[in-house]
């Protein structure tokens, strides 16, 4: 085939050489077609021997698993959320938007939303603000031991949340736990941490905080370390204070990673809450520690109201999607900072 094309080319060339100034129309059309064809084939050959099957084979396992176990459920949730079902009975009743309607008007909805917001506030304090400040200290205010701090602070992140839950259940035990002993030493009575409405959210937030703190810290630290040393030194020469350094150089230069950590703190933090809540409180006291994520489990596997569980799942997905979109939008605007 190559030879054939080459021959056409040669023929048209010869015609030119023999004094025909303009290519004959025919030859020109053939020539143009050939070039076009060549480009097409070329594209295919560059993709490895013209085989589209190779990448398909390589991609299939991961794509199959992720689509079947992540995207397909999303669609199924939408479908389930329009139905009334108890997960076991063969009868499934289509009820339209009723699940959503009941969910928004129920009394517990306000509680769930306030709890969720409270969780988010605690998580952001412990897992975003604190590691942000500490990573700045470690990267730019200290000269030594940074590696030690990093390793030590990260260690709890390798421990299971189940372990963390049981550990803190003992630490926060109001009768004999170590914290209650410390409190009584200064004359205070330990509250019943896991039985008080707002307190329980804060304590569970702290458990998540203990586990996730180190991970978020090193994410932020990697962004802090990437800030060029010359910028810091230039600011030091201008006699900038630590605060000014942080505010005018570090914050803008690390904004995209910070935003990412901000979003995962919320998105994953709320999911981590599942473990301690299920192990320690089962959503109690009086739904005081439940949230938008745990409620899906409750409706799905405790109350067996699959339709409502699906409706809550969709609601949580919508809220997460909003956060992710916010992140992408802000990132698009801010990219120039870090480039």
């Amino acid at each position: 085939m190559n030879l054939e094309e080459a021959e056409i080319r040669m023929a048209s060339h010869k015609a030119q050489d023999q004094g025909e100034q303009i290519l004959s129309n025919d030859a020109y059309i053939q020539y143009a077609a050939m070039i076009k064809n060549a480009a097409k084939h070329w594209r295919r050959t560059f993709c490895e021997a013209g085989s589209i099957w190779q990448p398909v084979v390589f991609l299939t396992p991961a794509t199959l698993v992720l689509f079947v176990f992540a995207y397909w459920p999303l669609l199924q949730d939408v479908w389930l959320s329009f139905h009334l079902w108890n997960m076991i009975s063969p009868a499934m009743k289509f009820v339209g938007l009723q699940n959503y309607f009941q969910l928004v008007t129920s009394a517990e909805f306000i509680k769930i939303i306030t709890n969720t917001v409270l969780y988010i506030v605690v998580l952001l304090l412990v897992n975003f603000l604190l590691p942000y400040l500490l990573s700045f200290m470690m990267a730019h205010l200290l000269k030594r031991f940074s590696f030690f701090y990093r390793s030590a602070l990260f260690a709890p992140s390798t421990v299971s949340l189940a372990v963390a839950s049981i550990l803190f259940l003992w630490i926060f035990n109001p009768l004999a736990g170590p914290l209650s002993i410390l409190l009584s030493a200064v004359g205070l009575e330990s509250p019943r941490w896991f039985k008080e409405p707002v307190l329980v959210v804060i304590v569970i937030g702290l458990i998540i905080g203990w586990k996730v703190f180190g991970y978020n810290l090193i994410l932020l630290l990697s962004a802090m370390v990437d800030v060029p040393k010359e910028l810091i030194e230039a600011a030091r020469i201008e006699n900038a204070s630590d605060w000014q350094l942080f505010r005018y150089i570090i914050v803008p230069m690390t904004s995209s990673t910070a935003l990412y950590v901000f979003v995962i703190t919320i998105v994953f933090g709320l999911q981590y809450v599942l473990v301690p809540v299920n192990m320690l409180t089962q959503g109690g006291p009086d739904q005081g520690s439940t949230n938008l994520v745990y409620i899906v489990y409750q409706y799905g596997f405790v109350f067996f109201q699959t339709g409502k569980a699906a409706a809550f799942a969709i609601l949580s997905m919508v809220i997460y999607a909003l956060f992710l979109m916010l992140k992408t939008k802000v990132l698009d605007k801010k990219v120039h900072y870090e480039n």
Partner: peptide
């Protein structure tokens, strides 16, 4: 690199689409 247009021959054969 892909060739955008024109012809490359090596040993007398058109090579544009040879890997």
């Amino acid at each position: 690199e892909k060739i955008t247009s024109g012809i490359l021959k090596m040993g007398g054969h058109v090579m544009n689409m040879v890997e």
